[in-house]
């Protein structure tokens, strides 16, 4: 959720992330996975979650495949294939597991993250 106090930081150009894919950004010494997805209505959306996969204990989520499971937009962990909902960070296979989400937006041609 965007609030008035948020300060936005430039991360990269939109072209640095290809449609339906993710990239990892270094942000405040954190690894954040940013995804660029065209949703069912044809709208371009951006999501940001932890890059750290809690199952494999590795920084790999940005390298997962995006897609939809029922109406949820997800990324699949490239190592053990669990799905994380991009908007909430919840793991679909294990509801005790989730990853953090971050505010992300496109400002002109620049992708920005907020703390």
């Amino acid at each position: 959720m965007t609030t008035a106090h948020q300060q936005w930081f430039d991360i990269c150009n939109i072209d640095d992330i290809l449609p339906s894919m993710g990239r990892c950004a270094l942000f405040n010494e954190l690894q954040v996975a940013i995804f660029r997805v065209i949703d069912q209505s044809g709208q371009e959306k951006f999501y940001a979650i932890d890059n750290f996969c809690p199952f494999s204990q590795s920084n790999t989520l940005s390298r997962g495949l995006t897609g939809s499971i029922t109406d949820k937009i997800v990324v699949a962990s490239p190592i053990y294939k669990q799905h994380f909902e991009l908007s909430t960070g919840l793991c679909l296979e294990d509801d005790s597991v989730s990853v953090k989400t971050y505010p992300v937006r496109l400002n002109g041609c620049t992708i920005q993250l907020a703390a």
Partner: peptide, 15 residues
């Protein structure tokens, strides 16, 4: 260009 670990840094994954 797409092989870098970070989109915005040349550092590598410290993990």
């Amino acid at each position: 260009k797409r092989f870098g670990h970070f989109v915005n840094s040349k550092l590598h994954d410290e993990n």
